[in-house]
Design a protein around this nucleic acid. Structure first.
Lengths: 190, 190
DNA sequence: GACTGCATGTAACGCGTTACATGATTGT
DNA sequence: ACAATCATGTAACGCGTTACATGCAGTC
């Protein structure tokens, strides 16, 4: 599944410009499928070429022409097929966990800073979600939107709980290997 | 953070061949930083060129020469610096959640199949983790390894719990939009 | 006879990230 | 004055995935 397919999905809910689609991504997919203009605009161009979407330009005074995209019948078919046939992959990529895995290469303060920074990111994300409640009047109230929002929240909270209760696992050992290796550095000199 | 850096990390724990490194990735990083031969071998070649690792070839009868890599002093420095300076990103990419978000484009049975398939994947992953306990004699018993293993497990279980208790959110509404759109398909014909 | 494990790599391709480029309007 | 919002896009670059290519040894 790629950005093209997601754009098709957004356009299955209504007609939007590239700019609007980016906002849709941010408010709905950012936690599990982020994308920027550099992905979205080329994706839209490709979809237009394949006639999976159509485009109506609205001239605006002093601003670039607004291009409103609309999904076509074959675009909708294609989208549903992609949805059904998707393998349902679900994968994390975490630099934070790499840092924790190799935490014995970090000193005590550096390690604590990384952990606290991750906790702070989690809290920011949760606060952002809370801040959005009520802001969206009627939009994004489908079961799917509620399910994915709740899923994201559950993951954030589970991560926070895990880190708070298990950080001692890495903090107890930190700095061990740094010291050991440093006193052993002549291994590399010979 | 890229595969190069992770290879350096693996080599900070001992001397290994590309083949061994792949196995290390599978047993330790697969849940948050997967990589295949197509990433690992080129990464090792680049590290060798930059002299962050050295390589000793062992000729073998009837098998390709075994290339054992060893991290250099500057490689170790570089690795620790990358670890410290990493931004600690932590991101999910989930086709499954896309499918749930747009679940009203799926029929009841297709949706249930996708959810059950995800649950089965989760159970398989948990079973695999359980199966590995005891298999690794003394290896991977650092605090970092324990922390990341536990984190992965906590995420899998939180995901499973969430899906089991909230799948009704998507199942109640499924098929609604498909029906609505199909009766409305003339929107596209004109 | 087929599959798994050992052991190395290459090549093509697609994908996404980042930075760049432009420019008016509205709010602080 | 400065930042944010609206609105479009391009270009370079790096990165990883996948499939391909080779070949022996041991197990089922």
């Amino acid at each position: 599944m790629d950005v093209r397919t997601l754009c098709l999905g957004v356009l299955s809910e209504g007609d939007y410009t590239g700019y609007d689609i980016k906002k849709f991504f941010e408010s709905s997919f950012s936690s599990f499928f982020p994308a920027g203009y550099g992905s979205i605009y080329p994706a839209l161009a490709q979809l237009l070429e394949k006639q999976l979407v159509s485009c109506a330009s609205q001239t605006q005074s002093k601003l670039p022409d607004k291009k409103v995209y609309q999904i076509t019948a074959s675009g909708l078919d294609q989208f549903r097929q992609s949805l059904r046939e998707g393998k349902g992959t679900h994968r994390l990529r975490s630099e934070f966990l790499v840092q924790m895995f190799f935490s014995d290469h970090l000193d005590e303060h550096g390690l604590a800073a990384l952990i606290d920074s991750r906790l702070s990111d989690i809290n920011d994300e949760i606060a952002t979600m809370d801040g959005m409640i009520g802001h969206q009047q009627g939009a994004n109230t489908t079961g799917g939107a509620a399910f994915t929002r709740g899923f994201n929240r559950a993951m954030l909270e589970a991560g926070r709980n895990y880190i708070n209760s298990h950080r001692v696992l890495v903090e107890r050992q930190s700095d061990n290997k740094v010291t050991r290796f440093d006193s052993n550095v002549n291994r590399f000199a010979g």
